[in-house]
Design a protein around this nucleic acid. Structure first.
Length: 423
RNA sequence: AGAGAGUUGGGUGAGUGGCUUAAACCAGCAGUUUGCUAAACUGUCGUACGGGUUAUUCCGUACCGGGGGUUCGAAUCCCCCACUCUCUGCCA
């Protein structure tokens, strides 16, 4: 969430940013946040003064009791009764102002970076670059949901039997392709200096709040009610939360972590015409990269993460484009997001395979993720993450783009991982 | 899952209602000295919020797993919850 100081000190800039996101009633909400904070502060000042007075009397009573002057102690004890009532009253006011402010701040999205284009929807996203050659396929090309049946590598019907819609079963070369991609992505990340982590894939409520899935996206996560745990929608949640309530040394920045995990999304209400086959699933595999950086470095880091993801797509020989998301299409917690989309040649459409974002201090404020600099001052670090990469749509485009009448050719870079070169 | 014991600063760990302003030791940081695979001594050493000063800092409040309660006063007493360990049971 935003810092209330940030709102007060940069009111015009924050307001302009929220308007770029089309955030409704931005000015009124920001004004309310500032005045709630004023109320909180003035209440605290008053409460602290009375508390100090009360503490002084208690101390005096202790001294009198020890000296055996019980009568005097009883006399001054009477004074505390009134103070107690006042403290209780101010305490309640303070708590409710603080709570109200916190809940209000939860509803305010991050302020977009200056480079974020204005706009309302995906159509307003800015295409940064396109790379690779879109293949021209033969007559009789098939979309991936046909190819997986033809070669019997991914089975949705079996998934329905075992679990339900959106939980495919990968079989034979399909399963091996999954494993090859995961290993390839992890090895690449290791070579780029990321430390591999295997986090839990169920998380508690605090972790959900830490990265901003709660209270916003409650309905999008699977929930294990008996134990109060959420199935992760992305490895971002457990990895970033590793650094919740942590003060790191400045020389340990940047922190670079990578993890492979399955991801679980209920995707309530988001099924439509274009979500056939692997395009949208309830369970899918993803390798995620996370960085914790010094505030001065985060935008440089964002570019390097974008370059890194593009490098993976080049190695997989997939045509892709990079989008700079507009204010209206960006995630709630992000300050700047690049989406990478690959071209899926049989569906003849672009598919999002990665989203790389800088959250600046929006997550670290909630996480209390800070670092201590040379000047001994603690300040909030910046957090970033990106998919590197999400598997299903990569698989879809590999299958579609590389199909021939005689089979599907695998990208060269995967051959050693797969143990075969054609499906 | 049952029974018992626990949770105190970066770490170990003392502390059963008021000289606790949380001891002591270790680690860290700064300095002094001896001197060079290092030691000794001295000092310093948490976080958050608020207030006053702004050269620097000073003051207040809260924080001993989390939440609530008793009391003039709680690390300490009471209640609820979470987690850890030991034993028993179960189990890949």
């Amino acid at each position: 969430m935003l810092l209330v100081n940030q709102i007060r000190e940069n009111f015009a800039r924050v307001l302009a940013g929220l308007q770029k996101r089309n955030f409704p009633n931005a000015e009124a909400v920001l004004n309310q946040a500032v005045s709630l904070d004023e109320l909180r502060k003035s209440t605290q000042t008053e409460r602290d003064q009375i508390q100090a007075e009360s503490n002084a009397i208690s101390k005096e009573i202790g001294i009198l009791m020890r000296e055996g002057k019980a009568e005097e102690a009883v006399k001054i004890r009477e004074k505390t009764a009134e103070l107690k009532v006042q403290i209780k009253d101010l305490e309640d006011q303070y708590s409710s102002a603080e709570e109200e402010l916190r809940l209000l701040l939860y509803t305010i999205p991050n302020v977009p970076h200056t480079s974020v284009p204005a706009g309302k929807s995906a159509e307003d996203n800015e295409i940064v670059l396109e790379s690779g050659i879109i293949p021209t396929l033969f007559e009789g090309k098939l979309p991936h949901w046909e190819l997986i049946k033809k070669y019997d590598i991914i089975d949705f019907d079996l998934g329905v039997k075992i679990t339900g819609a959106g939980f495919p079963v990968y079989k034979g070369k399909g399963a091996r392709l999954q494993r090859a991609l995961i290993n390839f992505f992890l090895d690449e990340a290791l070579a780029a200096g990321y430390m591999e982590v295997q986090p839990p894939i169920l998380v508690n409520e605090e972790s959900g709040y830490g990265t901003g899935q709660l209270p916003d996206k409650e309905g999008q996560m699977y929930f294990a009610a008996a134990d109060n745990l959420y199935l992760i929608p992305t490895a971002e949640v457990p990895i970033t939360n590793l650094y919740r309530d942590v003060i790191v040394a400045e020389q340990d920045l940047p922190i670079k972590n990578v993890a492979y995990t399955p991801c679980f999304r209920r995707e309530a209400g988001s099924w439509g015409a274009h979500v056939r086959g692997l395009n949208r699933l309830h369970q899918f595999d993803k390798v995620e990269i996370v960085q914790i950086t010094h505030p001065d470095q985060s935008y440089q880091t964002l570019e390097s993460m974008s370059d890194y993801v593009q490098g993976l797509l080049k190695k997989l020989e997939l045509p892709y484009r990079v989008l700079r998301l507009c204010g209206g299409d960006m995630g709630f917690t992000s300050a700047l997001t690049y989406d990478m989309e690959v071209y899926s040649a049989a569906q003849e459409r672009w598919l999002e395979v990665s989203s790389v974002s800088n959250f600046e201090t929006y997550q670290s404020n909630r996480l209390k993720l800070r670092f201590k600099g040379e000047d001994k001052k603690t300040q909030l670090a910046h957090s970033l993450n990106g998919s590197a990469l999400a598997l299903p749509r990569i698989v879809a485009s590999i299958l579609e783009n590389n199909q021939t009448p005689d089979g599907i050719l695998m990208p060269k870079v995967l051959h050693s991982y797969l143990g075969f070169d054609k499906i």
